[in-house]
Amino acid sequence: MERILEVNDLHVTFTTYGGTVQAVRGVDFHLDRGETLAIVGESGCGKSVTSNAIMRLIPSPPGKITKGSIVFKGEDVTTYSEKKMRAIRGVDISMIFQDPMTALNPTLTIGTQLMEGLKEHKKITRAQAKEKAIEMMDLVGIPNPEERLKQYPHQFSGGMRQRIVIAIALICDPDLLIADEPTTALDVTIQAQILELFSTIQERTGVSIILITHDLGVVAKIADRIIVMYAGKIIESGTKREIFYQPKHPYTRGLLNSVPRLDTKEELKPIVGTPPDLFSPPKGCPFTARCPYAMEVCDKVYPAQATISDTHHVDCWLQDERAKWLLAAKSLQT
């Protein structure tokens, strides 16, 4: 399978009044053609920053990629000039934003906003652009595309606007689509429709998708692989099956436990506490303070990556042989 994207040891920092925030602290992952990768985590865990870094859309200053590489189709885009990067944005990599109510310019018609990316990057006539725009409106399921192109965003509902945003992102046939919380701002019924739309589009166009979300329900529907981020690091990654059925990191388990399920009678257990301050991230595992299985070692050294399977990796000391004894003893006690 063709590898579309490879992120290696990515570090991103933000310089603010109060000091330097280490938002992303060494992130590695990859993405193949036609695959859907979900990046999951609480707000502030660095998942959005990571996706913005891939697009090179981190506001600079204060943000900066301090280390690492982002290899897109064999080339490291962190070395690209702004001009070269512009030629990729919207053409090869597209992005969908969280809130469809604010992602569209209120003073321009839908048609203008839909076609301008096409006109910017491809040499085509107005008529061709319009034809393509209508085709895209059809693809995302908006009726009467011809008329609706002339309308303004405020004349559309939230769900419709998100469909338009998706159409805008896909109009240049990108290889990679980054969707940052694409359903969070929508009603539950609309959410399901939009997720359905993602699957349809992927089938038809073969686009790779990075889905950023904190909602595991969304992930369960469309992801192939899952990355769990916490405090700027990937703490666990694996296929959807592996993460959902054999979660290894206590944080991942906590996340799964805080999702209501129909198949068990288990009580919902929220994860207590708040994530660490990334002005001065802890040198050990950042989850230690909230972890029900915290050991002395966790505070002192960041866990070595344990490989569960070819696709399943976890950064947790509980995978160490010596911890297994402790776990066994604990399960005997209770």
Partner: peptide, 11 residues
Amino acid sequence: IPDEWFTWKER
């Protein structure tokens, strides 16, 4: 890593 660090932490 020394073995004695593998003990439960007081919460």
